[in-house]
Design a binder for these strands. Sequence first.
RNA 1: GGUCCGUUCGUCUAGGGGUUAGGACAGUAGAUUUUCAUUCUACCAACAGGGGUUCGAUUCCCCUACGGACUACCA
Length: 515
Amino acid sequence: MSERPVRVRFAPSPTGPLHIGGVRTALYNYLLARKLGGTMILRIEDTDQNRFVPGAEDYIRQSLEWVGIELDESPWKGGPHAPYRQSERKPIYREYADQLIRDGYAYYAFDTPEELDAMRERLQAAKVPNPQYNSITRTQMRNSLTLPENETQALLDAGAPYVIRLKVPRKEEIRFQDLIRGWVVVHSSAVDDKVLMKSDGMPTYHLANIVDDHLMEISHVIRGEEWLPSAPLHVLLYRYLGWEKTMPQFAHLPLLLKPDGTGKLSKRDGDRLGFPVFALEWHGTDPETGEPTVSRGYREDGYLPEALVNFLAFLGWNPGTSQEIFSMPELIEAFSIDRVSKSPAKFDVAKAKWYNEHYLRAKPDAELAPYLLAALGEHGIECSAEKAAQVVGVMKERVSFPQDFWQEAKYFFEAPTEYDQAVIAKKWNAQVSAALGAYADALPADSEPSANAEVLKSIFNQTMEAQGLKPGQVLQALRVAVTGAGAGPDLFETLAILGTGEVAQRLRAARERLG
RNA sequence: GGUCCGUUCGUCUAGGGGUUAGGACAGUAGAUUUUCAUUCUACCAACAGGGGUUCGAUUCCCCUACGGACUACCA
């Protein structure tokens, strides 16, 4: 049944920043497309003009770019089925809505919002199990099914506001096969007469989505589980439009849940729980106060895109092996829709952090250096790319995020202004101080190219022996005197990067301050 | 409320009629490391409950409970 080319689409609406769950949906679409040699399409679903948010579309584009999801057809790149923005396809939908009316599958409805509210209240009061505009209630409403034909025509001619609704059958079983869930069966009585065309002349999601997926020859619809309840409606639409044979295959992805408690992961959870729910930082406005707001992004928080992708891929999918680390090409190779799980996944950032640490350590020093260089630049400190790479090289095993480099390694660029008191109290005394003075004197000049960690260590050992001390008695004091901190990467590596001149100077300064 | 979907360690999950129910993250302990971190090793820890079917159910079926989604002229 699916001998035709694989074409998948990610279809966000530009109503705000792209949620991390949306990124995962896009990722799964992309993985399937690449795995099967198909086409990845992005379509902007902007049929609701009231919810348009400036900048959102660009944000979506940048988010996908950042995580490495490439689009074969999109509003920005174009393609054989352009335009890829629904607002630019407006006339197309009208045509199909008219077709549905002609064929008796849809009808005009003239009910005002007040009348609809009244209807719902009436139904509620009558304890109707599911109040909705359907095969029963439509007989009591103002629509082209209840109104005489000439009256309908008169209303239309007079320009009365109306919507077009789908005429859902009273008793019919609607079934379809979901790639992830198997057969899903819903009775038509549970589906209401959904609005297809709004009174502003724009289609609703339901109509636009089906028309576009058909016209764009989409083979697989991979989307979040929140769409599962409306899938039967979509099946009906394909049928009534005469497109059932080429209906795409559906795959409804399990939801991403809040890490604590329950419920779908939402935009607010990020601030509440202290982790980003967006790929990129978003600058918006509070809808209530109009105040500018900033929402954190994974990128700005220091996550590497490959770590985010790997983490996201594993939320709802696994390869069935014990391999945890996957690059994008490896994910593409291993991905298959039937290994996507049915049950929702709680979003746990701890795992994302672990992935980040992994990818950070795996990255070459030269690629990590720019992060440090940028922080140094902000603080007005000059540093060569070589030295930055060295520092990053010894630090990357002990940090989780690139921004930690500056935070944890300041002392490579600034002499300490205070010393870890716990270590001082325990390890610092007159004899140790004198020994460190001797070490400072024994250090070769800065220009000495042979002053590597190895050499510095042997000089240290010799000096201590001459002082009648064991290295272990002095090492911690040496570290604190030079870096101010009680912990850090290999001491002599640290000293080597610092340079002997700087080390000697810091040692003398420490002796002056600590006695 | 109604419809639909789901339920294996704290979390992500593997497995699938007979297993010591496996891995990863987190946690704990130990080894290495002059320190901290890394790394390595070990430990902790799960089949929601009740009925069936079966020689045997975590696995298949039903019910219950719990969780979630949806229930707009939003997507």
